[in-house]
Write a protein that binds this DNA or RNA. Structure first.
Length: 425
DNA sequence: TCTGGGGTCCTAGGACCC
DNA sequence: TCTGGGGTCCTAGGACCC
């Protein structure tokens, strides 16, 4: 049996944990540059104008009218709260698959508890007691069914109180008949539409389709989902995260940029970030991709976008090598006279450091491991960007993200601890 | 009239997830 | 004026190998 534990409106409730004055009031968290709504608690979701990924400027009035509290995203805080939740889960079972920042699969087969329902409540209560975060727990024989059980635990709250277990054939069929096929994990909007066209609306109806149809229209991915819904485990349980196959970052600038110099600095900064991640998993990258584009949404600006992929002469994780390659690549695709919105970098062809093949004709210091390890050690000890490449620049970073309403990093910065100034009884 | 058989690697594009 | 970011997996088709 597998439990899927998922935090409710994770980012929004993380903010509320440290702001008890906001309990019971609508709270939303915004994307980078405070552009869109990316999380809303249940009070905010109840306000009909607020939907996920809605641009903030379009609903500003409604937000103010409904006294919604806005937060810029604070990933340092969410990441650390997530770790706390995952640590608690690992006290219940040695087999935990961290699926995303706010959810994890827990293998609970063979648990000698009185009932799985009780176990679900123990998990939920302990996480709430230790972190203040509410979660939903779904328990079932397969991952896809556990996801579905989790959904039911949250939807029929009064009945299930945040925990739902699929442990019999009757409950499985009941759950399948309740679920709209588009809510099934792995069936997205495209497939849901195709299924509706042939008259399939519920997860139950989906399981009644012949395997050949599924394989032909939805490939083996669809067949796995089909099997899982029937209670046959077909998706692997992964406790060890695989090394990443691609590492990229791309963020919209705080304001539009025309100047190549500024874009180069942003690009160099992103390269430093991704190469640090690359080194943390002891890998090197073979390809470097750079892309650049203007604002798609604007009908006033001239549009231009381009991307370029560079094959490195030796796979590397060296920040300085990657920055100089990126700079050359960026120069090749940059065109003056446009207002650029975003530059992105992506490393791929990722292989373990030990597998890197030499190249007789590569320039020396192409992969300066010793220098990079000193670099990382110092930055880990004294904080991010204590040491950085000069190409990132020292002037004001005009490309930097806008985060007007970021909450304090309560759990990771001594200077930003929660202060209790008054207590009401 | 008839033209082998068994593979690998790479890439672009599609679909999906949080 | 203002519209997010970071991933995974699969398939088909081309190019190539012996």
């Amino acid at each position: 049996m597998i439990a899927l534990v998922d935090c409710n409106s994770f980012y929004a409730t993380c903010e509320q944990v440290f702001r008890p004055d906001l309990w019971g009031t609508p709270v939303v968290v915004l994307s980078n540059n405070d552009g869109c709504v990316i999380a809303a608690n249940k009070e905010a979701k109840a306000i009909s104008e607020i939907s996920m990924f809605e641009p903030v400027f379009k609903i500003k009035k409604q937000l103010i009218a409904n006294k919604v509290t806005l937060f810029s995203s604070n990933y340092t805080l969410y990441g650390e709260m997530s770790q706390r939740v995952m640590n608690i889960l690992s006290t219940f079972s040695p087999q935990v698959e961290i699926y995303s920042i706010d959810e994890a699969f827990v293998d609970v087969s063979g648990m000698k508890y009185r009932s799985l329902n009780n176990l679900g409540h123990q998990i939920k209560d302990r996480i709430y007691q230790y972190t203040g975060l509410p979660v939903g727990v779904g328990i079932a024989p397969t991952k896809v069914l556990a996801k579905l059980a989790n959904k039911i635990s949250k939807k029929k709250v009064s009945e299930n109180k945040g925990v739902f277990v699929i442990d019999s054939e009757e409950k499985r069929i009941e759950a399948l008949k309740w679920a709209d096929v588009k809510t099934v994990w792995g069936i997205g909007s495209k497939h849901a539409k195709r299924l509706k066209n042939i008259g399939i609306f519920t997860a139950y109806e989906f399981t009644q389709l012949p395997e050949e149809w599924i394989r032909k229209n939805m490939s083996v991915v669809g067949v796995r989902i089909w099997n899982e819904l029937k209670g046959i485990p077909s998706i692997e349980f992964k406790t060890m995260p695989k090394p990443k196959q691609g590492i990229g970052t791309a963020k919209s600038f705080g304001k539009k940029l025309e100047d190549l110099g500024m874009i180069q600095e942003a690009c160099s900064y992103y390269i430093s970030e991704v190469s640090e991640v690359l080194r943390s998993q002891n890998s090197c990258a073979t390809y470097l991709q750079i892309f650049l584009h203007t604002n798609y949404f604007s009908d006033r600006d001239k549009q231009y976008s381009n991307s370029i992929t560079v094959t490195l002469s030796i796979p590397t994780s060296d920040t300085f090598t990657l920055i100089s390659e990126a700079k050359k690549a960026l120069n090749a695709i940059y065109k003056p006279g446009y207002r650029f919105k975003k530059v992105g970098v992506c490393l791929s062809g990722i292989i373990p450091k030990e597998y890197v093949q030499g190249n007789l004709f590569a320039p020396p210091h192409y992969n300066n491991n010793k220098l990079m390890s000193v670099f990382d050690t110092i930055n880990q000890k004294y904080g991010k960007s204590t040491l950085f490449s000069g190409l990132v620049g020292t002037r004001v970073k005009e490309w930097e993200l806008i985060k007007e309403d970021r909450s304090p990093r309560y759990t990771t910065q001594w200077g930003e601890l929660l202060e209790v100034t008054s207590v009401r009884f």
